[in-house]
Write a protein that binds this DNA or RNA. Structure first.
Length: 649
DNA sequence: AACATCACG
DNA sequence: ACGTACGTGATGTTT
C-alpha cells in the first residue's frame, strides 16, 4: 500500500455534490478516515496515510495451499475475490483467487490453466462450509465462477456492494470508489495491470500470476475493510432483515436464473428482420419523397426536426428540447399527426427501426455459444427504489404493446418439447400496496370484492350506479387516475394524458379524493415524513433519501415530493416480488422439480415448466407469490402457460 | 460522453 | 409564475 494518495480537488459524484456532501445529509454514513494528515494543494488533497505494512502472500505450491486452507476453515468469516479472463460469467476462466480475513493481509492462490479445476476443488471444504460467512464485492459473479469448477458455495453471504446499496441507495458502489470514500485509499487500478479498457485492453490470462497477486490480495483486503465499515450499519434494525433475509438470499436466486438463461428462436428473428427491413426501406422512401428532401438522415432527430419544422413548417410554434433543437419525440409528433400525413409515416418508421435494431437484430448475437441460450444479468444495486434492473441484454423491456412488437416476444420459447413457458404476474400490485399502506377502506374493499379496480374506481368517481354500467371512456379515465396517483401526477398531467381540459381533470381528481380519502391523506403524510426525516421507506424498511425535499427551488422540490410518494409504492412492490422469488425458489428446490425460474419483469415471473410438473408448479407459484407477505389486501396473480412468452403472458 | 428517443413495468 | 408521472437500458447521432 502506498503512503500518499491524492484525492482530486473536484471529485464530483452526481450533480454537483461531493461525496462528503452527499453522505452527510440527513445523518447518512459518516466518512471514517485512517489518514493521519491532510494537505490541501492545487491539484487536490494529499492524504498521508499511516504505514499499513500490508502483507500479501503469493501462494502457488500445494503445501502453501494446504497451509492457507487450514487457516481459512478456522475463520468465522472470510473475504474472497476471483480473478478471471473475462467479465462475462459464462465465458470467464479463473486465473486465481484471493482471500483475506484480517486487515492489511491477504493471500493469492494462482490457478494456472492446466490445473484450474483441481485447485478450486482443493478449497471445497472451505467454500462448502456452512459455518463460514463468505464475503465479496459483487458476490454473484464470484459464486458463478467458483461453481463453474464444481464447488457450490454455502454459508451466509455478505456482499459489500449490496450492503452499500442499502446504506446509500443512490450512490455509486464500485470498489475503487468505496475504498477512496471509506478507507481513504486509492487501490491499484485494473488498468495499471491490463491497460485502459477498449480494444487494446489485455487479459489477466496473459500476465505473470505473481504480478496479479498484490492486486488481487488488495481487493480481498479492501473487501474485508469495507465489510468492517458496513456490517455495523447493516446491523441497525431497519436494514438487518432486508439485507440478510431478502437481498442476500436473492443473490443465489438471481445467480440460478442468469445461469439458466432462456431459449430464443433465432431463425424466427432472422426471418422477421428481413420482413422489417423491407417495410423500413419503403417507409424511408415515402418519407423522403413526401418531404421533397433526399439527402438527410432520418435517424437523426436534429436533421429530421429541421426538415419538419424549417422546410415543411408543419408547426408554427414547434416544441424545442432543452438544448434548443426541435423536439421530434413520439409525444410531440402524435399531436401533429393531423397537420401532415408524413408524421404518421415517420412514427411508423421510428417504431420499426427501434424493434429491428434493439431487438430483432441484436438478440441473436447475444445467444451464448456454449449454452445456446440468452443470459441476462440482473443488477441488484442500480434502481434507487429497490427494483432490479436487467442488462446484456435487457429482458425487462421486450416489446408487447404493439402487434409488430409482439412478434419479438414470441421468439422467447420453451426449452424443448418436454417443457412449456409459464408466466405469472401480480394483478395491480402497486395499487394494492397503496391501498394497504394508506389503509383506505374503500379501495381495500374494492380489492377484497375482487372487482376490476379501474371499473370500480370509475363507478365511484363518476357516480355510476353499477360497475357494469361504466363506459369504456370512464374506465380508462379512472385507470389513468389510478396510475397517475402512484406517480404524484398533477391535474395538468392528467389532462395532457387524457386529452381533456385541466378543469375536467381537476374535477375527476377531486371526486377521486372524496372516494378514497385516506389515499389523499397518505400521499401528504409521505411528503411530510420525508420533510421530517429526509427519507421515505418501504414495507421492508428499505430507504430512499430525499435531500431535495428541503430545496428552495420549487421544481427540484416537486421532483423530491413525487419521489416521496412513488418510492415507497414502487419499492414495496419490489420488496414483495423479491420475497416471492426467494420463496418460490426455495419451494422448487424442496420439491426437487426440474422446472426453472427464468425471468423477473418487476411484477412478473417467467418459468420453463416440465410438462409433467404443470400442476405442482402452478401450486407453488400461486401459493408463494400470493402469500409472499400479508398486507391486509389480497395479492392476486394471473398466470398462463404457452409454447412461448407471448402465449403465456 | 451527452443527448434524444423509445422499449418495458 | 413555475413545470408538470415514477423507475430502468439500448440505440444512433452528435460533440
Amino acid at each position: 500500500m502506498g503512503e500518499e494518495i491524492i484525492i482530486p480537488a473536484q471529485r464530483v459524484l452526481s450533480g454537483n455534490a461531493t461525496a462528503d456532501d452527499q453522505l452527510d445529509l440527513f445523518g447518512g454514513p459518516k466518512i471514517v478516515t485512517d489518514a493521519i494528515e491532510e494537505k490541501e494543494t492545487k491539484s487536490g488533497t494529499i492524504l498521508t496515510i499511516a504505514d499499513t505494512k500490508s502483507s500479501y502472500i503469493f501462494v502457488d505450491t500445494s503445501s502453501g495451499r494446504k497451509e492457507l486452507l487450514n487457516k481459512l476453515i478456522n475463520q468465522k468469516s472470510v473475504c474472497f475475490d476471483t480473478e478471471t479472463t473475462d467479465l462475462d460469467g459464462v465465458h470467464a476462466e479463473i486465473v486465481g483467487m484471493s482471500f483475506s480475513f484480517e486487515k492489511n493481509s491477504g493471500y493469492f492462490v494462482s490457478t494456472p490453466p492446466e490445473s484450474r479445476k483441481e485447485i478450486v476443488q482443493e478449497f471445497k471444504s472451505f467454500f462448502e462450509n456452512e459455518a463460514i460467512e463468505k464475503v465479496a464485492h459483487n458476490i454473484k459473479y464470484d459464486l458463478k465462477i467458483i461453481e463453474k469448477y464444481g464447488v457450490k458455495v454455502k454459508g451466509q453471504l455478505f456482499d459489500t456492494m449490496i450492503a452499500h446499496y442499502l446504506i446509500t441507495p443512490e450512490g455509486k458502489h464500485n470498489m475503487d470508489y468505496l475504498s477512496e470514500l471509506y478507507l481513504n485509499y486509492r487501490p491499484v487500478s485494473i488498468e495499471t495491470l491490463i491497460g485502459k479498457k477498449g480494444k487494446t485492453q489485455g487479459s489477466m490470462a496473459d500476465l505473470d500470476p505473481k504480478d496479479i497477486s498484490d492486486y488481487a490480495c488488495e481487493d480481498a483486503d479492501i473487501t474485508f475493510q469495507l465489510k468492517q465499515k458496513f456490517a455495523p450499519e447493516i446491523e441497525k434494525e431497519h436494514l438487518k432483515k432486508l439485507f440478510y433475509e431478502i437481498e442476500m438470499p436473492l443473490v443465489s436466486v438471481l445467480q440460478d436464473m442468469e445461469t439458466e438463461g432462456i431459449n430464443l428462436d433465432v431463425e424466427a428473428l432472422k426471418k422477421y428482420s428481413v420482413e422489417l427491413e423491407t417495410d423500413i426501406v419503403e417507409l424511408e422512401k415515402q418519407v423522403k419523397e413526401m418531404a421533397g428532401v433526399q439527402d438527410f438522415n432520418l435517424d437523426s432527430p436534429k436533421q429530421l426536426g429541421e426538415v419538419l419544422f424549417d422546410h415543411l413548417k408543419i408547426d408554427a410554434k414547434a416544441k424545442k428540447t432543452k438544448t434548443g433543437q426541435y423536439s421530434t419525440s413520439e409525444d410531440t409528433l402524435t399531436k401533429l399527426e393531423a397537420n401532415n400525413p408524413i408524421v404518421r409515416l415517420i412514427l411508423n418508421y421510428r417504431s420499426l427501426r427501434k424493434l429491428k435494431s434493439t431487438y430483432v437484430d441484436s438478440l441473436p448475437d447475444l445467444v451464448n455459444k456454449k449454452t445456446g441460450r440468452v443470459h441476462t444479468s440482473y443488477m441488484q444495486t442500480i434502481a434507487a427504489t429497490g427494483r432490479l434492473s436487467s442488462n446484456n441484454p435487457n429482458l425487462q423491456n421486450i416489446p408487447i404493446r404493439t402487434e409488430k412488437g409482439r412478434e419479438i416476444r414470441k421468439a422467447f420459447i420453451k426449452r424443448n418439447n418436454d417443457y412449456c413457458i409459464l408466466s405469472a404476474d401480480y394483478s395491480q400490485i402497486e395499487l394494492r400496496v397503496i391501498a394497504a399502506v394508506s389503509n383506505d377502506e374503500n379501495m381495500i374493499e374494492a380489492f377484497r370484492s375482487g372487482h376490476d379496480i379501474h371499473a370500480a374506481t370509475a363507478a365511484k368517481v363518476f357516480h355510476v350506479d353499477k360497475i357494469e354500467n361504466v363506459t369504456k371512456d370512464q374506465r380508462s379515465a379512472a385507470k389513468a387516475v389510478n396510475f397517475g396517483i402512484i406517480y404524484g401526477q398533477s391535474a395538468f398531467g392528467l389532462s395532457q394524458n387524457l386529452g381533456i381540459s385541466r378543469t375536467e381533470a381537476k374535477e375527476i381528481i377531486d371526486s377521486y379524493w372524496l372516494q378514497y380519502p385516506k389515499i389523499k391523506q397518505y400521499l401528504s403524510d409521505s411528503v411530510q415524513f420525508a420533510r421530517e426525516h429526509g427519507y421515505v421507506e418501504t414495507i421492508m424498511k428499505r430507504r430512499r433519501y430525499l435531500p431535495d425535499i428541503q430545496s428552495a427551488n420549487a421544481i427540484v422540490r416537486g421532483f423530491a415530493e413525487r419521489n416521496a410518494v412513488n418510492a415507497p409504492i414502487q419499492g414495496s412492490a419490489a420488496d414483495i416480488v423479491k420475497i416471492a422469488m426467494i420463496h418460490v425458489h426455495d419451494e422448487m428446490k424442496k420439491q426437487n422439480v426440474k422446472s426453472k425460474m427464468l425471468l423477473q419483469v418487476h411484477d412478473e415471473l417467467v418459468f420453463d415448466v416440465l410438462l409433467s410438473e404443470k400442476e405442482i408448479m402452478t401450486k407453488i407459484v400461486k401459493d408463494k407469490m400470493e402469500n409472499a407477505v400479508s398486507i391486509g389486501v389480497p395479492l392476486v396473480i394471473d398466470y398462463n402457460f404457452g409454447d412461448n412468452w407471448l402465449e403465456a403472458h
